[in-house]
Amino acid sequence: MKIATKVDDKKRHVTFALEGELDVHQVKGLKSTISEAIVAGDWSYAIDLAKVGYLDSSGLGMLVYLKKEITRQGGRLQLLNVAESIRSVFQLTRLDEFFGLK
């Protein structure tokens, strides 16, 4: 799993672009990398999933954790470019509503 992080200090915005397959094998390292970049306050975060071709319940669990953690710290999280191949997992678990994908 590759991750590219772009921070815009002026706009208080961070984008994480992920590439690869998001399963239990990848989640632990990725969760800690993204968690370390979260700061308290009114920041917005985006996770770009355009290049994520596979996502399972471990990946979903990580996204749920990150959204809750970011919200707890006063920020906002948005998912970008959710590919059709993984969108059904969000629909199946009704997480499309939770992440505002509808």
């Binding site: 399972d56 319940s57 979903l60 669990g61 990580m62 749920v64 954790y65 997992v89 199946l92 678990t93």
Partner: peptide, 8 residues
């Protein structure tokens, strides 16, 4: 975070 596997 967890508990969705069997549901899926």
């Amino acid at each position: 975070e967890g508990g969705l596997g069997v549901y899926i």
